[in-house]
Design a protein around this nucleic acid. Sequence first.
RNA 1: GCCGACGUAGCCCAAUUGGUAGAGGCAAGCGACUUAAAAUCGCUCAAGUGCGGGUUCGAGUCCCGCCGUCGGCACCA
Length: 872
Amino acid sequence: MSERRKQYPFDEIEAQWQSLWDQQKTFRASNPGDPDFDPEKPKYYALDMFPYPSGQGLHVGHPEGYTATDIISRYKRKLGFNVLHPMGWDAFGLPAEQYAIEHGVHPRETTEKNIAHFKAQLQRIGFSYDWDREINTTDPSYYRWTQWIFLKLYNSYFDTESNAARPIAQLIKSREEDFPGESAGERNAYINSRRLAYIDEVAVNWCPALGTVLANEEVIQGKSERGDHPVERKPMRQWMLRITAYCDRLIEELEDLDWPSGIKKLQQNWIGRSEGADVHFTLDAGESASTGDRITVFTTRPDTLFGATYIVLAPEHTLVDEITTSQQLQEVTAYRQTAASKSERERTETSKEKSGVFTGSFAINPVNEEKIPIWIADYVLTSYGTGAIMAVPAHDERDHEFASKFGLEIRQVVDPGKKDDSCFTGEGTVINSSPLIDGLGTPEAKAVMIGNGKEPGWLEKNGAGMPRINFKLRDWLFSRQRYWGEPFPVAWDDAGNHFALSEEELPVEAPAMDDFKPTGTADPPLSKALEWVKLHEHSTRETNTMPQWAGSCWYYLRYCDPDNKHDFISREADDYWMNVDLYVGGTEHAVLHLLYARFWHKVLHDLGYLKTREPFQKLVNQGMILGEDGQKMSKSRGNVVNPDEVINEYGADSLRLYEMFMGPLEQVKPWSMKGVEGVYRFLARVWRLFMEEDQEGKWQLSDKVSNVEPTKKQLRILHETIKKVGHDIESLDFNTAISQMMKLTNEFTSADSRPVSSLAAFLHLLNPFAPHISEELNRIIAAAFPDVAPDEQLANASWPIFNEDYLVDDEMEIVVQVNGKLRDKMIVSKEASEAELEAAAKQLDKVQPFIEGATVRKVIIVPGKLINIVAN
RNA sequence: GCCGACGUAGCCCAAUUGGUAGAGGCAAGCGACUUAAAAUCGCUCAAGUGCGGGUUCGAGUCCCGCCGUCGGCACCA
């Protein structure tokens, strides 16, 4: 193809327009306070999920979502909106750091190089970003505010009364009033335990080879995703963010958002709210247990308490040491050791057989005073609920499997109401329990046990338990042992107390280090920068860094006011721009990024810094683009398509158009170079609609383009197209908008006389999709027909208005059916009455045979569409 | 196992509240132009909508039961 002559000079056109846009700052959005700001204009905020600038550069999956938001942005500008359409870089992260370690290049260098490459690639596609608002999470002027937000989290607590975050000062004040005699140390400990950012000792995925803690999703089958190194569970002191305080709001406030229902559901499931009860089982006075101790379990089925035939504790449960009898000690110890050596992944492998051991002790079931054995097993997780369960093997599959294996009693207490010989976990009628609940349905029996919201239930009245709501979501492990991340604005004193740095000390920049290799111990690389670490005579800096998620939690806010030196965002900018009207990105961020960003947003909202409760009003996930072989694109498969190559061959407009023409935005679809060629041919057809080659092969305006009145047919298709393209852009159905423009092009191509007024209008429609070619053609006809096409850029000119009058016909085609089967069609006047229609239909030769000798039972008329005669 | 998305010409995909299965592109075939080819222009071809039931005058569309592909979650009591 490179040998072949280009069908139109896209390479010259595209470069020219791109540099013009750049020089003129055509797509600059003005902020409140700017001299050219127009408060009358409505705003529109179209946001892409910003990329991690990897060394590989863009592949054709990136521009899919970017093109969609670009079309919307260009379209909205033409409708008179002030459009915020920015781009930036999520540039902290492990790949740059690993590269640094392996090649001795500072991650800042790699990052800068990668960003430059990414940016150049994006600019070649002709996106209408306001590059004045470009942000980079690794820039100290950016991450100073990431650190500032961390200070807000550190200096806040969650007030359950108002169900919102409040300044920690309020908590300190009320604590002082409530406990005036408390020592400073005690008070400090209490306050620290309530902060939204706090320190905890938690089991983490520690990777010795990489020298860092990894997130669960970075661990694949006990090995690190990057490098395939072994990962072990290890308790470490970590910074945590109290996202669990927001569980309820993160679920409830999803409701008003215009997000795909699947993504909402995914978030709900991730947060995993379940209602139930804590139930206390008293320990039976065994040899080592002291009387009166109790085990608390969490259950969502308090109606099945009478079917609880044993208790299971997580192997790590704190009571295990206390209750294990000497006969069982050896077995229990061995089991706990095995469990501890397993990774989280191995522990939760559902396919594996249940395992566990008996502790030798017993507990008393509070509902019937029965003595039931206490086991430990790794299918009970220490991190959920109370780390202990009551096992009801008749009505829980996991308990059933366990009981069957170890010969424990299985007692049925729910009647399914139908024949069911499997383990029944659904709702039914209570049996074999007690007069208290026997005969009740599952929901009623639950209510008796836990209460109905007004009246306390049996458990509470008898001191045997409490209603309780549990969540799967855990607090967010927020520290990493890495160099290439935001340092914490925190330090430690000699006594081991942490304290926040002041806002004036921000940004806390990482020291320039030559050696950022992991230390091989739990100490982060920053601990090697001894001078930096030492803050004052009696204090040292925190040496952990923040995870990659941090910067992306609030970047959408910074775009609104990127150069603000005094605030992370000004009140005016927040008021005006937020929230995001359209957010487009991949499903891979459906849970974590979106959940974390929503959490931070809510905290900042609670503290009075933001007006909105939610950041992203409308969310769309673009579908993945597969390789030509229908497989996921990957280097190893060799099916990766580089947008640069596509642009070299066919131009940026063709790339943009094909990305959108492939199919519905949200759908997964395979790439096809033949398909690119198809849209390229379409653009060439558009070009030749206006242009023709002279003897020397130079392009000039075609004689066929003239200032004539369009025909009725031409007007009709033009206005159909104006209507459809506008509608389809609004609903993000770009593929069908493009096909309509192809239809129009075909129609006008076959015309000998091409009315310039119609063609000019068409260029407006094409402009958001293929901005370079449309601007160029518009410039050419504006020069030749100044009365028809004003000499202005399409980017700034108004979207055409369609006129419904051109769409209606005097006549219409009506489908004639007999008994629902198509028999004929007829052309009738638009004014024809139903009776006239019926009479005309019955006269048709192709209809007659089917109604002859039959009784007409019914005639169905769909106005303007069809007539159906029901006869037998 | 659970949740979600998708199954329509050879391929990618269209088809208002149920109302003519086809808009567009790719591929294929034919013709025009050409010494010839490419490019271009014009024309043509093709499925009865994954399978089985049901509702309806009428089902790609609604309901029930399956099958397949892809993605996500996965012992959360």
